[in-house]
Computed example of a mutant assay.
Amino acid sequence: MQILFLHQNFPGQFRHLVAALAAQGRHRLVALGQPQAPGLPGVEFVRYRPKRDPAKSTHRYLHGMERAVLAGQAVIETLLSLKRQGFVPDVIVAHPGWGEALYVKDVYPAARLIHFCEYYYHAEGADAGFDPAFPLTLDDRARIRTRNALHLLNLEQCDVAVAPTAWQKSLHPPIYHDKIRVIHEGIDTVLAAPNPDVRFTLPDGRVLTRQDKVVTYVARNLEPYRGFPQFIRALAQLQAERGDVHALIVGGDEVSYGSKPKDAANWREKMLAEVQLDPARCHFVGKLPYLDYLKVLQVSSAHVYLTYPFVLSWSLLEAMAAGCCVIGSDTAPVQEVIRDGEEGWLVDFFDQDGLLARIGQALEQDTAALRRAARERCLAYGIERGNAAWLELIGVG
């Protein structure tokens, strides 16, 4: 079978699936991505580049749509070249959120088009407007409504779609629900596993082990969408009350979701100007190599995962698989993987006292049962299960 992958940051969410297809050894795999995409060994990878950015004169609601059209045009020009060389895919697997898949059916009308439907935006009931610190305006609501035009086009033209969680599927218009399967791409539950002998070396040479009291927090970038301000405020209070707690904070200072603060270079700087933390016990370690990041999870006494109702982070599932005692926000889709008091504890996103109380329990009580249940729950999100469902959908299982 000939299979085409479209993802501006390929491989993205398709990493495990592509590896499974390559291991079968009987498919031609071709992928398209933008210049910054890392690619993947064993896959024919073609980079494309949109010819320009959206015009300054374009209405700001439509900047995303124009960017998507430009990406779609660049993709079909690349595909026409591949088609002239004889490449005709049987199946196209695409993340359509940036426009790459807009016109592929015009080049390959007979190909089966599978979309990864990650998110459909709402002005109420999801991320937008969730945090009172960032109230929505009418302009915001109009912008969100317009933004979904791309996603509606994508839903209309795909043959079948995949959403990683039931809640993310539920955000899409009900008329398309029959098209959407729920398949999480999976995490590596072999690498992400408990290690009672783990040792994490701090930048100054000190070593943390499972005998230390360590609170952990992980996000791609430190920002409000992942509850960074709420976590830092709680941590400052925790450190003021206890002198024996270290904090390991993983994440960068860029913006993944939302926007930068108006009065600081990034959210880390803003929060450090607001609260007092003990620098000897609060360790911002930035973005780590994967195995070092896993050591952070394995050494954790209490792992905090806060999020707006939004896409589910791989880091939550990896923390559970590593046997962390997770204190998560009582928000979707966290509620889909953690039942309060069974695989972890859930607290109101804005309840600092409740968060502190649960962290205190994790530091002082025996949490072995919660940790075991978290890992057991996470086995349902292993790579093997995700790959099996994807391969069956593609028709090569």
Rank of each mutant, 00 (worst) to 15 (best):
F284K: 06
V245D: 08
W267D: 06
A219H: 10
A280R: 15
Q211R: 13
K262R: 11
A273P: 02
P196I: 03
H303N: 15
Q237C: 11
K260E: 04
V275N: 07
Y217R: 00
W267M: 03
P279I: 04
K287Q: 13
E269P: 00
D253Q: 13
D212V: 09
Y225R: 14
T307A: 13
V214G: 01
Q298M: 10
Q237T: 15
L288M: 11
P261G: 02
L235M: 15
P229E: 10
G227K: 00
V275Y: 09
V214Q: 01
G251S: 07
N221W: 05
A236V: 08
A240E: 14
G227D: 03
F231I: 04
R220Y: 03
Y217D: 00
H246A: 11
D204F: 01
T307H: 02
A302I: 12
G258Y: 09
L288S: 10
K295H: 12
K295L: 12
A234E: 05
S300Y: 03
R242D: 11
L235D: 05
P196Q: 03
F310T: 15
F231S: 03
A192E: 03
R268S: 04
A236G: 12
V255K: 00
S313R: 02
L208C: 06
V214H: 00
Q276Y: 05
E269K: 07
V285N: 05
P279W: 07
T209V: 09
I232H: 04
L288P: 08
L272Y: 07
R268N: 05
H246F: 12
P194I: 07
P196K: 01
S256G: 03
D212R: 01
L291Q: 15
L248T: 06
D253F: 00
V214T: 07
P289H: 10
M271R: 10
I249A: 08
R233Q: 15
Y308H: 14
G243R: 12
A264M: 02
R199N: 02
A234R: 01
K213P: 02
P309Q: 07
W314M: 05
H246Y: 13
F310D: 15
V218K: 00
L235W: 13
V285L: 11
E274V: 12
L306Q: 11
L235E: 09
A247C: 14
S300N: 08
A234H: 01
P289Y: 11
Q239M: 10
G243I: 09
A193W: 06
P279D: 14
P229R: 07
V190D: 15
P203C: 03
V285M: 05
G205T: 07
G286C: 04
R233P: 02
Q239P: 02
Y290W: 13
L272V: 08
F228A: 00
T189H: 03
D204A: 01
L248Y: 06
P229W: 07
A265W: 00
L248R: 07
V296M: 10
F310I: 13
V198M: 01
F310K: 10
V198T: 08
A240F: 08
K260P: 04
L306K: 10
S259W: 01
P279S: 13
V215F: 04
T209M: 04
G251P: 13
H246W: 09
L191G: 11
R233L: 09
F200Y: 14
L202D: 04
P309K: 05
L202N: 05
L248V: 06
R226W: 02
P196M: 01
H283Q: 10
L272I: 11
Q276W: 06
P289T: 13
P229H: 11
N221Q: 14
N221C: 07
V198K: 00
D244E: 12
Q276S: 14
W314R: 10
